[in-house]
Design a protein around this nucleic acid. Structure first.
Lengths: 193, 193, 193, 193
DNA sequence: GATGAATGAGGATTCATTCAT
DNA sequence: AATGAATGAATCCTCATTCAT
């Protein structure tokens, strides 16, 4: 089935180049023509490879989640302690700030209208969430679900702030005071986090 | 004298009832017709009271920020310690979760396309931000700007999570582990936070 | 009937101040609100004095034609020869160029959609045309109807040109070569013009 | 390859059929729907071929100016003397009176709001004016710029008159008395006109 | 596979006019 | 007499999608 492989390969190549377009204008305001032009194909071709704008978006999000969590996973591979892993993860997020914010923004815009039921049934979203959960649980080693959400919240909140706060602080600064707090918490509540 | 309408008063009344419509569909997908229907007036009337959809939105956001920070301020008035105030604030956010998320969502959607320069120049936004900053600084007493951002990030991040995470934790749970962390931080770094 | 006199007087005062508004934007693009604002009254008041936008316009055009032809008539009163009267008339048109063009423009815009039949039946227009015909026939003394139209055409054409030709010539220049032509014509075809 | 349409060719064909619609209602009051219906396409298709109503209009005016001056040019090709050429030109204008008036009307309506600066910068308009200037200068042979404007004024003025004067004279009649005048003028002021 | 022409419902906004006060 | 709130049809334009070639 060589034809199918080629088809799929080309589809993935197109997908990657859609991100910047979506990121610049947001999902809703990105038009199929804009995508087609950025990809230097016709809208007809776009519809040959994807059934709809929605499908493009969902496939893109999923592909990115796979690549991103793999990248972060690799980065944390050599680290020994949770503290070191956490620090490395924070550094990673700080380094990829712009990209992370764009991604979060698109995520939020796209899924905002979904009911909890629809959210729970969305296959693409669930695969994506599982990726990130595994990353935190296995990759970093945070096993306390509340701490896990706290850390993730800080990152998402920090990314969000920069959207409407012109003078927000850096993640490094946040991590500087959060690190000791977490360390203290971990010491107190045994080591099972 | 024309019909019995106090122009400005009626304008504010209309404004309040716009929130739910914007909240349900988001800023971009809310149409003037939807707003008019929800308000039980004609689109023409809407344009009699507001120059544009944008203006409706910005006026709404500002009015809400005023009312919200006043409400929270009042709630914190009797509290003695920072710890108590923080706890009360978190309880407030938890209680108004749905509303807070809708607001944040609209905020983020609306301001995402703005450049930092435009953000810094947006009069409405700046008035809103100042409201919240004062609330944290004076109302709660958090004077360390990094801690201030950390706390705000946790709240915003928590609100954000619930958009795409069907099974996120409650703010109460986050506060339960964050409270001791912050208390420890405050003890260590003197009392000037 | 003093009330009616006051009413009518106020109506005429309002009318005069409408010209600049119509002249700036054209008949169609001038809104009742613009007129009301320029006149410092409400739209309701406008409708108290005039039945419609159309009526305002027609009454205005007629009032202006009366005033204008009276003014030109007075200016030509002392002149002895046709040549002198023509020259004075041309000077008058050159002096009032801007005003004349605005008037012509409004005229043309307003009456363009009319059929010849409607034109012939429009009472206001007919009164206006009679004003100008009398001016040329009696005031200036041009009795040859073709010459009369030729001269009027030159003036209207000159006014028209300046609308889309950035570098049109002055009426003075046109008159300079037209004068001798007309004089020659008059000499040749006896003096009955 | 898509449907069998030579884009540019079809665009020009659409353009031609827009004139009557614009001519009937004027630029401002012609709606895109009216144009689309007259052309038997959807509004969407109209926007596929033209970026805006303005663009349709400007392209139309330019295309017409090209075709018209070419037609008149061809008509004058065989004439020997200026007098003959002038007469032929006047006959041409008389023959195309209705069309000429419609065109002038649209011209005037469209360009009336423009400032001299905007007029001078309007690329489409400048190309059109150059067409007509060349026609008069080279095609007819009128080299005296004032005479050139005088003649053009007579034509434009005559066209204008018929808009609001139900009983205007024919161009033939005007030409009958204007011809000898011009001839006399030319004799007197040598042959360099 | 690839193209781009074609669609038409739906978007924000405008405006002459009416009428209760 | 005077006001200005209220209307809603109509404006230009956009865009995801379909489909003939």
């Amino acid at each position: 089935m060589p034809k199918i492989v080629e088809h799929d390969q080309y589809r993935r190549a197109l997908l990657r180049r859609c991100f910047d377009v979506f990121a610049e204008h947001g999902y809703a305001k990105t038009t199929m023509r804009q995508l087609a032009e950025a990809l230097e194909v016709s809208t007809g071709t776009l519809y040959h490879y994807f059934p709809s704008k929605q499908a493009i978006f969902e496939q893109l999000m999923e592909q990115m989640a796979q690549e991103d969590s793999a990248a972060l996973d690799a980065e944390l591979a050599g680290m020994a302690t949770i503290e070191a892993k956490l620090e490395a993860a924070m550094a990673f997020f700080e380094r990829t700030e712009e990209y992370g914010r764009k991604q979060l923004l698109l995520f939020v815009e796209y899924y905002r209208g979904f009911s909890p039921g629809e959210l729970a049934q969305d296959a693409a979203l669930n695969r994506i969430i599982r990726q990130y959960e595994q990353l935190f649980f296995d990759g970093i080693g945070v096993r306390d679900p509340v701490l896990f959400h706290l850390l993730w919240s800080v990152v998402d909140g920090w990314l969000t702030h920069r959207i409407y706060l012109p003078h927000a602080v850096s993640l490094r600064d946040l991590a500087a005071i959060l690190g000791p707090m977490v360390a203290g918490y971990l010491r107190t509540y045994s080591g099972d986090l």
